[in-house]
Write a protein that binds this DNA or RNA. Structure first.
Lengths: 217, 217
DNA sequence: ACATTGATTGAATAACCATTCAATGGAGTC
DNA sequence: GACTCCATTGAATGGTTATTCAATCAATGT
C-alpha cells in the first residue's frame, strides 16, 4: 500500500546533495545547541541520515564545520556582490545595497547568526574563520571604503575619511548582528538597518535620506 | 635546604582566593581553547591546583563558567559606573567616560574579549549570558540614551533621537570588540575609540571634537 | 540475471571528560 | 601533643562522542 501524500525519497543521493543536507542540518544544530553541543549524532539525526555518513562525505567533524562556515560566507558574499556590482547605479545606491544585504532576511536571521557567532567564540573555529572569511571581510570593507571615497569626491564632502567610515560601518554591521542575536526583542533587523542608514545620512546628508523629520526643510 | 628565590606558597588558601584563582585560570583557558576546549583538567592545571578543586569551590563546571562571566560583567560595570557617575561633569564628558571604559585596556583586551564572545557563541552559555548581563547591558544603554537626551536638550540639537543614538553606540561597541578580537592587525583599541568619538562628533559637533582637520575653521 | 561500484548503516572502539569520594594534609584549638 | 575541621589531592567511575569498518543495499552496466 503506497502512501499517496509522501513519495518516498530515494535511499541514495548524489554526494553534493548529501553534503548540502548535512550542512543545513549542521546550521540547525549549531543554532540549537552551539558548537560544543553539536554532535555528529545530532547532526545526522537532524538530517534524517545515519551516523557514519558525515565521515564519509566529509573527512571529519572539523571539515564539516569549516564547510558550513564556507557555505554561509559564500552565500553572504554572493548577495552583496550581486546587489552592488551593477555598473549603472550611483555609489550611494551601491553602498545602500551592501547595507541591505547585511540585513537581508536570508542572511540576518537568528538561526544563521548563531553559527557566525559560534565561530567567533571558539578559538580553533576562530582560526578557521579567519582563514575562510578574513579575506572576504576585508574585500567587503575595501568595497565600502571605495564607495565612500567616491561619494565623498562626487558629493564634495569635507572632513570625511573613507577608511574611518568603512571601519565604523563594519563594526556597526557586526554589533547589530550580535544585538539581534542576543536581544531580539530590543534589536530588530529593520531597526538595525534604519540606524545604519541614519548614520550614513549624518555622513552624507545629500545622498542619504534621514528618517527623522528635519524641521529646517 | 631552603630555596632563597621562591618562598613556597601556603598549601591552603581562603576559599575566596581560590575562587578568584580558578576564575582567572578559566579566563585564560577559554581565551586559549574556547569554552568547549576548556576542561576542568586544563583549568586546574593552569591554576596550579588539583582536578577536584573546582567541584569543591563551585558546584559544577557550569557554575564556574557563570561565575567567570559574572566576574567580567562586574568588572566592566564597575569601570564605566565609576567613570561616569560623578555629578560635577557635563553629560558629554560622562558619555565620553562610558566610551573610554568600553575600550579600557583592562576590559578590552583579546584575552577577555575571547571570553565574552565564547559566551555569545554557545547557546546554553548564551542563555546564562542573557540572565547575567542582559540587565547590565540594558542599564548601560539606558544610561547612554539618557546622556544623549541631555546633550540634545542642553546643546539645542535637532533631528537627534536619543534611543537611535544609544542603540547605534551599543552596536558600535560590540562590533568594535569583535573586530579587535578577530582582526587585531586591522582594528586596534585606539582606532575603535577614535571612530566612536568621530561618530559622536557627527551627532554633537559642538560637544565632541573631531580628529579630522576641518577646512572651514 | 549477474556483477560491480559506490552509498549507507549502525555497532564497536578508543579517547576524553565532569563528577565523586576516600584518603591525605595542615592549620588552628584545647 | 592530640584533636578537629576544612581544604586538597588524584584515582576511579560513568557517561559521552568522534571515528572506524564490516556488512548491507541499490543502482548501473554487461
Amino acid at each position: 500500500m503506497q502512501e499517496p501524500a509522501t513519495k518516498k525519497p530515494p535511499r541514495t543521493a548524489p554526494p553534493e546533495a548529501r553534503r548540502d543536507q548535512l550542512i543545513e542540518a549542521t546550521i540547525t544544530s549549531i543554532s540549537k545547541h552551539g558548537i560544543s553541543g553539536t554532535t555528529l549524532a545530532k547532526v545526522t539525526a537532524e538530517a534524517g541520515l545515519s551516523l557514519g555518513l558525515v565521515n564519509f562525505h566529509f573527512k571529519s567533524k572539523e571539515a564539516l564545520l569549516t564547510a558550513t562556515l564556507t557555505h554561509l560566507a559564500d552565500e553572504h558574499r554572493g548577495l552583496w556582490i550581486s546587489e552592488s556590482s551593477r555598473s549603472d547605479v550611483a555609489p550611494a545606491e551601491k553602498l545602500q545595497a551592501i547595507v541591505n544585504a547585511q540585513f537581508h532576511p536570508r542572511i540576518c536571521n537568528r538561526r544563521k547568526l548563531s553559527v557566525w557567532f559560534a565561530f567567533f567564540g571558539e578559538s580553533r573555529p576562530r582560526t578557521a574563520y579567519r582563514k575562510v572569511t578574513g579575506p572576504l571581510d576585508e574585500e567587503r570593507q575595501n568595497a565600502t571604503a571605495e564607495l565612500c571615497a567616491e561619494i565623498t569626491t562626487e558629493g564634495g564632502y569635507c572632513g570625511i575619511i573613507p577608511e574611518t567610515l568603512s571601519a565604523t560601518l563594519e563594526s556597526l554591521f557586526d554589533g547589530s548582528w550580535l544585538n539581534i542575536l542576543m536581544y531580539p526583542d530590543r534589536f530588530t533587523r529593520k531597526m538595525a538597518r534604519d540606524n545604519v542608514m541614519e548614520y550614513l545620512h549624518l555622513c552624507f546628508p545629500r545622498d542619504f535620506e534621514s528618517r527623522v523629520t528635519n524641521p529646517q526643510s
